[in-house]
Amino acid sequence: MNYEITKKERIARIVSILTVVPLVALFTITLLYINFKEDFQGFFWYFYSILFLTILPISAYPLKYILPSYRNSGRGGERKLAFILAILGYVLGSFFVFILKGSLIVKKIFSVYFTSGIILTFANKSLKFKASGHACGVSGPITLLYHFLGIQFYFYI
């Protein structure tokens, strides 16, 4: 019986790690870049997307140990900081992709993440609903992949 709990906890931990939103973003952006390289209009927009949707949000984990207000805040503080940096990445990335006249595919990518982030923030803060960041961070990219790749994207998973 005790072994089952440990096994379930391990599976839950693996699923949690694999569905960390920045890693899903990295997978999504890379898959789209591989299939639509010319639509990205160069490597810059691929790197740009990785910077704002993966690197900035995932930087919360090392920053937790540097920022005094988060250092001793435990897992809750770590999650809060990750959420803040993800939303910051979505907002700044969206703003600059339109200002810098990014490619259409990159605008669509950022629009999906921006919209998902706004809806999640609204649900959690205004409605006091505990919406899952992992679920939101997976469902948006799956919709995006389906939009661009159709049913064939299932073969990449």
Rank of each mutant, 00 (worst) to 15 (best):
M1A: 07
I5Y: 05
I5D: 09
K8Y: 03
E9H: 13
R10A: 07
I11Y: 00
A12L: 14
I14C: 03
I17G: 09
T19F: 01
P22M: 01
V24Y: 02
A25K: 12
T28H: 15
I29Q: 09
T30Q: 05
L31Y: 05
L31C: 15
Y33D: 03
Y33C: 02
I34T: 13
I34S: 08
N35A: 09
K37V: 02
K37C: 05
G42A: 13
W45K: 14
Y48K: 10
I50H: 07
F52M: 08
L56C: 10
I58M: 12
A60Q: 10
Y61F: 15
Y61S: 15
Y65T: 11
I66T: 08
I66E: 00
S69G: 06
A82N: 04
A82G: 05
A86E: 08
I87Q: 05
I87H: 00
L88H: 02
G89H: 01
V91F: 03
G93M: 10
S94M: 08
F95N: 04
F98W: 10
I105Q: 04
I109R: 11
F110S: 14
I119A: 14
K128G: 07
K130M: 06
S132R: 01
S132I: 01
G133E: 05
A135F: 02
G140T: 00
T143H: 00
G150H: 02
F153S: 07
F155G: 06
I157Q: 09
